[in-house]
Design a protein around this nucleic acid. Structure first.
Length: 892
RNA sequence: GGGCGGGUAGCUCAGUUGGGAGAGCGGCGGCCUUACAAGCCGUAGGUCACAGGUUCGAGCCCUGUUCCGCCUACCA
């Protein structure tokens, strides 16, 4: 026994922090910007600095880490660039709330002091999520960590803003935008979340300015009528061709507004008459522009009615609705109220109902940028995986509208624009200007707005690498290899990075975009704190270990499908990690030195088999990872480690290791065991870095971290073993025989402690030799006392028999014969086989199958039919024997 | 309104050019066999949502129906 025995169970806690610190102290995560090795780069989707790790982060991080660790094993120069996002609105909300708890209001403290407070908060709590990523084992190059409000990134933001402004791609203007009255800021279109709402449709009569009656309009938002500046009908609408007046009186205000004709109005909806409120509806705004209508803003930025609302001034917008309806009813102008389901926009940060509002804002003219972004994906310079997301990407970019980038908050990149207090000219400049370039006045007032957070994240792939400076980091690692993210920020972030990257770097930001699933709960619901269905990854790590969590996420990460996470599955993969641990524990009871090469050695059949399987597994894992099929790679490894290596190989090699066979096989067993363990640890390492490092460090013949190892086949000292189909076939026969005996034992209720007598029969001499060569193995794993293999297939009548390929396996049922049981067992087997034979025969009798199907398919069916028929014959003979026996014993 | 994805074993899900339906968990039966009871051995269970079509052959391709989920849209 060696002194490197492992404990009986794997304890993740004791291991994880130790190795993470070791990797960091050994600088193993560091990228080399001057290396000649093939570069591999990923920029992390920067989590919000206010963020707390959730399952989405855990999945996203795990997948990136798998890729990075895999590519390091391939010998590539890997950069995984981490960082956080300043998350303007979210962060401001968080800090505001914490200040409010102390009774402080940000307006009272002023902008500068508030921003200082946010920075203070950032320094105190901003690294929470970074620390959590480290718990996950993320092998980011932390020396290059960035923050979107860093000096360097801010410089990039400013340069980009000025450049786009000068190119005419950024402009300022008064338009209808989405306004969050709670956050008191404008929002971009995609920052509004729509939700179905049970609302009402109010029918209101607008009396003609002269004459009787008046058209009836239908609206879901009666409070906005106070800001109406016209009533519109479709010019084709016969109902409104003849009217007694061309103006109506706007109820509750007494204002006279014109009746206009515009074919935007849908004759089929409601009454065909539409109220026009240019200041509070994007469509009405467009109509207003066409007809030169004035805009009357009746809802203020605070969500309260303005002075323009007359008697309703100061009311909350929802209270105002009630009172307007009451007032209309009183005046007899409310015709009817209908139920009406429609969708309402909510702020994606605070869920308040968004108010379409007229307001001066900054916009990016998106179309020209979008065209380049579309072309890059169409031409495959960037590949989106899985491909189905390409369409969403195209559809969004093709219909994209200008991007409102100004936010009326304090935390963020302040817009580098100044207005001259004297001549009124607008100055946009990278450097803070001292005086107005037009009139030389020093009376310059800076725009108080900041930029949309996504404006700075759009630059992330190159701003983090030092742009606008020409850095060696950019030189080496841009474009990055892949972006790993979830689809929910495909538009927010991915599309915008594409636009900015192409525009400013003249090259795509990433070769691949891998879009992974969203993590949901067991019922398929999105995990959220408000519904209380979150599984906290940190809890999982504490209960099951990081490796178990990571392997679970990888195993679930099938392309194009959401992940419904259940704790049961995590438990299962925790067991898998433990299984690996124990297989190593067993190995270390025998291995004392580094294994020597297994190539060209005299090896046992199980040795050759497991090495061939190892080779197959290695190839499959590499192929799956190259294609981002993480679940397949994980599944392949699980199957190989547990069911091939542990269940079969370790059991098969035990006699050799315990010295019960030729010494040569003890040696080959040790070499094979070492080699398989060695390579398997490397294959597993990207998925479960901690346990593999822990075992690796104790494996004789290894030096330093497993992170420095080479993927199997990439290390000249260890050429990959070859595939050996013949060895695999032979081993499969042996395993089949063993399983057949175990099956009989189980079906016949024979205790595992009872050793059996088994008679094997085969017609083919070669088969017979193969079986006899593996006699010890079969005896050992099937718990057989005496075993006889003959060509004649001699066997006692009182036996239970199974057929494995062309071998009959008979277990002597001495004293414990249950004839009826064996008869029933055979009946079941025969019935099953009968079905298969019938199906195969049907195919072969079908002329069009034989003539039209490919020859190899037909041949395969033919062979199967022959084999099954032979098997059937043997089974039937066995049944006859057992029935005769039943007759005899019944007679005696 | 438009678009997309899904409906496969009791549960959660795989199934990559169409060629005899799989895994994990759970169930059942048996085992403390000298790495592991977080384990070992064996076993049951499915008209692949429904209806058509293409094909020698369909879980996979086409059409329709239905249920669920998501994205998207300015019909008041």
């Amino acid at each position: 026994m060696t002194d490197n025995l492992l404990d009986k169970g794997y304890d993740p806690k004791a291991v994880e922090t130790r190795w993470y610190q070791y990797w960091e102290s050994e600088n193993l995560f560091a990228a080399d910007e001057f290396s000649d090795a093939a570069p591999y780069a990923i920029v992390i989707p920067p989590p919000n600095v206010t963020g707390v790790l959730h399952m989405g982060h855990a999945l996203n991080t795990t997948l990136q880490d798998i890729l990075c660790r895999y590519h390091r094993l391939l010998g590539e120069n890997v950069l995984w660039l981490p960082g956080t996002d300043h998350a303007g609105i979210a962060t401001q909300n968080v800090v505001e709330r914490s200040l409010a708890a102390k009774g402080v209001d940000r307006h009272a403290m002023g902008r500068e002091t508030f921003i200082e407070a946010v920075w203070e908060w950032k320094h105190k709590y901003g690294s929470t999520i970074i620390e959590q990523l480290k718990h996950l084992g993320a092998s980011c190059d932390w020396s290059r960590e960035r923050f979107t409000m860093d000096e360097g990134l801010s410089r990039a933001v400013r340069k980009v803003f000025v450049a786009l402004y000068e190119e005419g791609l950024i402009y300022r203007g008064s338009y209808i935008i989405n306004w969050c009255p709670r956050c008191r800021t404008a929002l971009a279109d995609i920052e509004v979340e729509h939700a179905e709402h049970e609302g009402r449709l109010y029918h209101i009569r607008y009396p003609y300015a002269q004459g009787e009656g008046g058209p009836v309009v239908a609206t879901t938002r009666p409070e906005t009528m106070l800001g109406d500046t016209a009533l519109a009908v479709n010019p084709e609408d016969d109902r409104y061709r003849q009217m007694p007046a061309d103006h109506v009186i706007l109820p509750l205000t007494g204002r006279t507004i014109p009746i206009i004709r515009d074919d935007y109005v849908d004759m089929a909806f409601g009454t065909g008459a539409l109220k026009i409120t240019p200041a509070h509806d994007p469509n009405d705004f467009a109509v207003g522009e066409r007809h030169q209508l004035p805009s009357v803003k009746v809802i203020g930025d605070d969500g309260l009615m303005t002075v323009e609302a007359g008697a309703f001034e100061g009311l909350d917008r929802f209270e105002c609705r009630k009172q307007v309806v009451q007032a209309l009813e009183k005046e007899g102008l409310l015709v009817k109220i209908e139920d009406h389901a429609h969708s309402i926009g909510h702020c994606y940060r605070c869920q308040s109902i968004v108010e379409p509002n007229l307001s001066p804002q900054w916009f990016v003219k998106t179309r020209p940028l979008a065209e380049k972004a579309i072309a890059a994906v169409k031409s495959d310079r960037t590949r989106i995986i899985p491909e189905k997301w390409r369409n969403d990407y195209f559809l969004w970019l093709e219909n994209v509208r200008d991007w409102c980038i100004s936010r009326q908050i304090w935390w963020g990149h302040q817009i580098p624009a100044w207005t001259c207090g004297d001549c009124g000219s607008l100055v946009v400049s990278e450097a803070d200007p001292d005086q107005c370039p037009e009139c030389e006045s020093e009376n310059l007032v800076r725009d108080s707005d900041v930029l949309d957070t996504w404006f700075s994240s759009a630059l992330w792939p190159f701003s983090t690498m030092g742009w606008p400076d020409k850095t060696s980091l950019l030189e080496t690692f841009y474009p990055t290899s892949v972006l790993v993210t979830a689809f929910d920020i495909l538009f927010f972030w991915v599309a915008r990075m594409m636009m900015m990257g192409l525009h400013f770097m003249a090259e795509v930001p990433f070769r691949h975009v891998y879009i992974h699933a969203l993590v949901r709960d067991e019922d398929g619901k999105k995990m959220s704190k408000s519904t209380g269905n979150v599984i906290d990854p940190i809890d999982v790590i504490n209960n099951y270990g990081t490796d178990a969590l990571r392997f679970t996420l990888a195993a679930f990460a099938a392309q194009g499908r959401d992940i419904k996470l259940s704790e049961k599955r995590i438990e299962g993969y925790r067991n898998f990690v433990n299984k690996i641990w124990n297989s190593a524990r067993f190995a270390f009871m025998h291995i004392e030195d580094a294994g020597t090469t297994v190539i060209g050695k005299n090896l046992s059949l199980p040795d050759r088999w497991i090495l061939s399987r190892l080779r197959q597994t290695t190839d499959s894992v590499a192929e799956a990872l190259d294609d981002y099929r993480f679940n397949e790679a994980a599944g392949t490894l699980y199957q190989f480690v547990w069911h091939e290596f542990c269940d079969w190989y370790l059991e098969a090699v035990k006699p050799a290791l315990f010295g019960k066979t030729d010494e040569i096989f003890r040696q080959s067993g040790l070499d094979t065991l070492w080699r398989v363990l060695h390579d398997t640890l490397i294959l597993l390492h990207p998925f479960i870095p901690f346990v593999t490092e822990e075992i690796w460090q104790k494996l004789p013949g290894t030096e330093g971290s497993i992170m420095k190892a080479r993927f199997p086949g990439k290390d000249p000292d260890f050429p990959a073993p070859e595939l050996e189909p013949a060895a695999e076939a032979d081993m499969e026969l042996v395993m089949g025989i063993i399983t057949a005996v175990r099956n009989i034992r189980g079906e016949m209720n024979i205790s595992p402690s009872v050793a059996l007598s088994v008679f094997l029969g085969a017609d083919d001499n070669g088969t017979l030799e193969k079986i006899m060569a593996q006699g010890d193995l079969i005896r050992n794993l099937a718990r057989i006392d005496t075993m006889e293999a003959t060509k004649s297939g001699r066997r006692p009548k009182a036996s239970a028999t199974a057929i494995v390929r062309d071998v009959s396996v008979s277990v002597l049922l001495e004293g414990v014969i249950d004839v009826s049981k064996e008869s029933a067992r055979l009946d079941k087997e025969i019935a099953k086989l009968e079905k298969e034979i019938t199906m195969l025969a049907k195919k072969l009798e079908n002329d069009s199958f034989v003539s039209k199907a490919p020859a190899d398919v037909v041949e395969k069916v033919r062979v199967q039919h022959v084999e099954n028929s032979e098997k059937m014959e043997k089974l039937k003979k066995n049944r006859q024997t057992i029935q005769e026996l039943a007759a005899e014993t019944g007679a005696s």
